[in-house]
Structure formats: C-alpha cells, structure tokens
C-alpha cells in the first residue's frame, strides 16, 4: 500500500491568558491508502486538535501551529496558500464532526449544505449538485432523499444528521475521511448503525479513514492500526490486534483495564487510572504520565521517552518494559 498522508513532528500551541498551552507536542504518523487508523485518548489529549491542525482548522489566534508538516499528495498542507488548502478541505479530505446537532447551519436546508461542497470543488451547477445530493443521502440510507433535502437540520434526528454529515463529507469522493468522535453524542444503537454504515462505505468507496475516539471498543471494531495519545504525545502505536493482545505502554494498559468486560467478576470494581492528565504550560522534561504511572522508575522523572520500537510494527514511548518491570 502506498503512503497517502503523513504528518511529521506536528506541534500546536494555544496562547491563552493563563499561558501557552502545549496541546500537540511533536506528533508523527502516516496513513496508507484505504487504511483505517484509530486515534484514541481521553478528552484534552490533543487528538482532535492535531487532526484539525493538519487542515489548519483550529482558530488562529489563539492557536498556533508551531512546527511540523502534513504531506498530502506531495504537498505540505501547512504551507499551502489559503486558496489551495480550501480545495483540499472537503474536496480531497472530508471531515465529520462530533456533534451532529450543532455542526449543521440551523438556517439552511440540508440540501443547500450538501450541495455546497459539490458546487465548490466539482464545479457542479444547482441541478447536478441536487441530483448528486439525493444520491448521497440514498447512499447513507436516508429514506425519501428527495423530500428530506428540503428539510432543515432541526427536522432530522441525531442519527440522521450524522448520516447526512457523512454524506456531506463524502460528497466529493475524498481520499481521506477524518471522523472526529462521530458517534460520541449518539446513543449506542445509532452508534452501531453509523459504524456499520462507515464500514460498508469504506468497502464501496475505498477511502482511508482516520477515526478519532475515546472509545476503545469502537476502535477494535473498525480500525486496522491504532495510535494512543496522551498529553499531546503519541505514547503507543500498533496494529489493533497487537495493541489489544499485548499493550506496551502503562497508559494503554490502564485504559484497557478500565473497560468493563462481560466475563469479569461482577463484584469487582472497574480499575481506573488515578489522577488527571496534566495541562501542559511547559514542555515536560520528564514523562508526562509519570505522576500517574504505577511502573514509574527514576529515569521517568529525568527524561521524556520518545517513541521506540518495541515489537514488529509496534512502538511505545516508555522507559519500562511493562511485562518485566525493567528498564528497556
């Protein structure tokens, strides 16, 4: 598989009144054609910000993309002119957002909003865009698409809106679909429907997907490769199978232990990770997870580990081998 999209050393900061927040600290990853990549982490770990940064969608100011590159089809998205970047957004890279309730413009019809990217990127006229929009709604399995296009967002249910949002993101047949927690605000049955829909659309259209979520269960069902983020750093990267079979980073271990399981003793309490993730006003000189880490050794407080190869296609940023408890 050929490399489609690669991000290197991305760093994003937010300049706030309280000081500079280091939200993304040197994130690098690559995406192959047709691959589904999961990005996992708790709220505020920088997963959404890093994806928004690559398309320069964070508000600037207060946000600032300090360094890094995002190479897509041989061009660095962070250096493109606003006009060139505009044609990548929505045209070649589609975006689905977390909250379908607020992500549509409430005063425009769904149809008008669906037609917009088609007119912008494919130069369609109103009639062509309308027909294509009907086709898209049908593709995401919304019944009576001809009538529903004339509806306003508030006339759609949450699940339907998220389907329409996916239709809008896929309207111009992008090579990459970035989905930023698209199922978080939906209830579980709808969540399953949306995941089924995306899985079948991926087969049909063959686009690559970056799926941002805090739900490890969603990732297991959808992705081929997973990145785990913590405090703006990638702490572990592995194929889904390997990550669940043999998690290497203490944070990933903690996350997996905190998942409820059907075969677990009912009386046992779910394990949790003590403490809260840090807000980084300074780049840490030591491991940002050290204060919450049960495997901590002296070195963790002296030097921040970078990602290192710990197995085949498996990287983790930790000084300790969690299976032996010894320093790597």
């Amino acid at each position: 598989m050929a490399e489609l999209y690669s991000v290197k050393d991305l760093e994003t900061q937010f300049h706030t009144r309280e000081g500079t927040v280091h939200a993304v600290n040197g994130v690098s990853f690559s995406l192959q054609e047709g691959e589904t990549l999961g990005i996992v982490g708790e709220s505020g770990c920088g997963k959404s910000v890093s994806m928004l940064s690559t398309l320069r969608l964070i508000p600037q100011p207060p946000g600032e993309i300090v360094s890094g590159e995002a190479i897509f089809q041989g061009r660095d998205l962070l250096k493109l002119s606003a006009e060139e970047l505009r044609h990548v957004r929505g045209g070649q890279i589609g975006f689905v957002f977390q909250d379908p309730m607020t992500s549509f413009n409430p005063v425009q019809t769904i149809g008008k909003q669906l037609m917009e990217p088609l007119e912008i990127h494919l130069g369609m006229n109103k009639k062509q865009a309308w027909d294509r929009a009907i086709e898209m709604l049908r593709m995401v399995r919304i019944p009576n698409p001809e009538d529903r296009l004339k509806d306003y967002p508030h006339q759609f249910s949450g699940g339907m809106r998220q389907r329409a949002m996916i239709a809008m993101a896929l309207a111009c047949s992008p090579q990459v679909l970035i989905a930023d927690e698209p199922t978080t605000s939906l209830d579980v049955t709808i969540q399953a429907q949306i995941m089924d829909l995306v899985t079948s659309l991926r087969k049909e259209l063959g686009m690559a997907i970056i799926w941002i979520t805090h739900d490890l269960g969603v990732v297991a069902g959808l992705a081929e490769r997973v990145i785990v983020m913590y405090a703006g750093y990638i702490v572990e990267e592995a194929r889904v199978k390997d990550l669940y079979a043999k998690p290497e980073h203490p944070y990933t271990l903690g996350l997996l232990r905190s998942l409820p399981r059907l075969d677990m003793d009912e009386k046992k309490r779910l394990a949790s990770i003590e403490g809260v993730p840090p807000v980084l006003f300074k780049k840490p000189k030591f491991c940002p997870f050290a204060s919450r880490c049960p495997y901590r050794i002296e070195k963790c407080l002296e030097e921040n580990p970078s990602l290192m190869l710990v197995g085949e296609n498996h990287k983790a940023a930790c000084w300790v081998d969690t299976y032996t408890g010894k320093e790597r």
Binding site: H87, G90, F95, F104, P106
Partner: peptide, 15 residues
C-alpha cells in the same frame, strides 16, 4: 465560534 462555521470551513467554503 459555532460548530457549523468549522464545518463550513472544513467543506472548503471561502472565508
């Protein structure tokens, strides 16, 4: 600052 403005930008709408 609304979400739909980010959506519009992500669609490639002119500023």
């Amino acid at each position: 600052n609304q979400d739909y403005v980010v959506t519009a930008r992500a669609k490639g709408v002119k500023e």
